[in-house]
């Protein structure tokens, strides 16, 4: 870590005569390729995205196809398992591998969607609070306190179930309840950036508030926003899994990992794989986004890690 400091200080001190390969961007790339957690997380997530996109090509069976004569087959490594159904079949005779692959799609769509919804709300509020300050900041601060006091899971469950559980509803509700992290970080960063000379320069040149926010402040927040966005994907995936597990999220027969765990629960004493496998899938998805997010934070802002 101290070494990195040296490099960073060096580049800052002699910005004019640094050779081309030491620009901040290149330094960042270098750090990226040295950060093991980041590489592992990004690699895993990339793999999951590929699996999700090409699920129709990879999946050996249709995930909705029920073959009642082939119910609850064990995976290939367990006794009685066969190569035809690598990970066995569920209580309706559907191929488990295919359902897991399609479940990755569902998880990613909901994770990305909810993180985007939360991002739009949180960043808007955060930038406004940080930029305008005063009354606006106080009101938004009050909103934040209220949001933190809301029992999130309970409200998400009731809203999703009562509006009618569908994918867009799950995405909007989870997004609507997960924006505080964006707000806190962008607010603090905006307050710092606002003080810088180049913002004053833009003001003197006659830029309006919205121009300053869009062209001068937002680009500088991008790194932090991407870090939070990545971490929020994991949080949203966990939230969706919990909702679907409780029966108030994604509804059958759509393949969702949380729902698959709920469906496998009844047979879990003699077919534990039905519960274990989707759990591992959720774990891999969430840990990859967490590693990638933490790694991105280390790489883009190595000085303020906590």
């Amino acid at each position: 870590m101290e070494k990195r400091h040296e490099i960073a200080d060096h580049s800052a001190a002699s910005a004019d005569e640094v050779p081309e390969e030491l620009t901040p961007r290149l330094l960042m790339k270098r750090r990226m390729f040295r950060h093991k957690g980041f590489l592992l997380g990004t690699g895993l997530l990339f793999l999951l995205v590929l699996l999700a996109i090409f699920a129709p090509l990879i999946a050996p069976f249709d995930p909705f196809d029920q073959v009642l004569s082939r119910r609850l087959l064990p995976p290939v490594w367990a006794e009685g398992g066969g190569w035809e159904h690598l990970l066995g079949t569920d209580h309706l005779g559907r191929d488990y591998l295919s359902r897991l692959l399609y479940g990755a799609r569902m998880s990613l769509i909901i994770g990305l969607g909810a993180a985007t919804v939360g991002c739009v709300i949180g960043v808007t509020l955060g930038v406004c609070a940080g930029y305008f300050g005063g009354r606006i900041d106080q009101v938004i601060g009050y909103l934040l306190t209220c949001q933190l006091a809301l029992p999130g899971l309970l409200l998400a469950m009731s809203l999703v179930f009562m509006i009618g559980p569908s994918v867009p509803v799950v995405i909007s509700v989870i997004g609507l309840l997960h924006w505080t992290y964006y707000l806190v970080v962008t607010r603090a960063a905006t307050m710092q950036i606002k003080q810088l000379d180049y913002i004053a320069a833009a003001r003197t040149l006659g830029s309006s508030h919205s121009q300053i926010i869009i062209y001068e402040i937002l680009p500088n927040l991008l790194n932090q926003i991407i870090v939070i966005f990545t971490l929020e994907i994991g949080i949203a995936v966990l939230a969706e899994a919990a909702l679907s597990f409780l029966g108030v999220g994604i509804q059958p027969p759509i393949p969702s990992w949380g729902l698959m765990i709920a469906e496998g629960k009844n047979a879990m004493y003699y077919r534990p794989w039905l519960v274990i496998l989707p759990g591992i899938a959720i774990f891999i998805m969430v840990i990859s986004t967490n590693l990638m997010g933490d790694g991105l934070r280390d790489v883009t802002a190595p000085d303020n890690r906590s």
């Binding site: 899994a241 765990i261 629960k265 004493y269 534990p272 759990g279 774990f283 969430v286 967490n290």
Partner: peptide
């Protein structure tokens, strides 16, 4: 800690049940 944050609560519960019931 990083790993624990990625484990779904309800899943851990079910694993405990499988372990401690059987």
């Amino acid at each position: 800690a990083v790993m624990a944050q990625a484990v779904p609560n309800f899943w851990l519960g079910l694993i405990f049940i499988i372990l401690f019931a059987v």
